[in-house]
């Protein structure tokens, strides 16, 4: 079996995995980081979005071995101790979730949106950028609100 080495949320990890192991399986089953969810398993829904070398990817459509030598960030890597990341806090403050299943992917995608588009986001931009993340509860309204508020909060972080 191939050996894979990567950094997950800042920590180096090494493991022997079957080549067919998906990155999301590796995160959830080997590392027990179950915050990254599997929704559709066909790269449509975005529940499995993580960052690989700072870019959003669907972890259900990437092999763990493809992330060899990469830096992976999951939802578990965002908070500092008990202090939520401003984007997580924004989802809480704006009630940007109902069942919560899509939320980890939404938050990771939101951070990617901020990285590429800055802290002042209009509604149309956020809606277009969220096209790869599906939520079946909220109707997106409060998610869009949360992303915009989170983006702003990240900009004003001391």
């Amino acid at each position: 079996m191939p050996t894979v080495k990567m950094k997950v949320n800042g920590k180096p990890v090494t493991a022997e995995v079957e080549a067919r192991t998906l990155l999301v399986q590796f995160l959830r089953e080997n590392l027990r980081l179950t915050g990254t969810h599997v929704g559709c398993d066909t790269s449509q829904c975005g529940a499995c979005v993580v960052h690989v070398n700072g870019k959003s990817v669907k972890a259900c459509s990437m092999l763990a071995v493809m992330a060899e030598g990469c830096e992976v960030t999951t939802i578990e890597g965002l908070a500092t101790g008990n202090t939520l990341h401003p984007m997580q806090q924004a989802f809480m403050d704006n009630h940007g979730l109902q069942c919560g299943f899509c939320t980890p992917g939404m938050v990771m995608t939101a951070l990617d949106i901020v990285n590429r588009n800055g802290n002042e986001l209009d509604e149309a931009t956020v809606r277009k950028e969220l096209e790869g993340n599906i939520c079946r509860c909220t109707g997106y309204h409060n998610i869009v609100k949360s992303v915009r508020a989170g983006a702003k909060a990240m900009g004003s972080k001391p």
Partner: peptide, 9 residues
């Protein structure tokens, strides 16, 4: 094409 995460791969 696709969505942002797909375009990254």
């Amino acid at each position: 094409i696709g969505d942002p995460a797909v375009r990254n791969r």
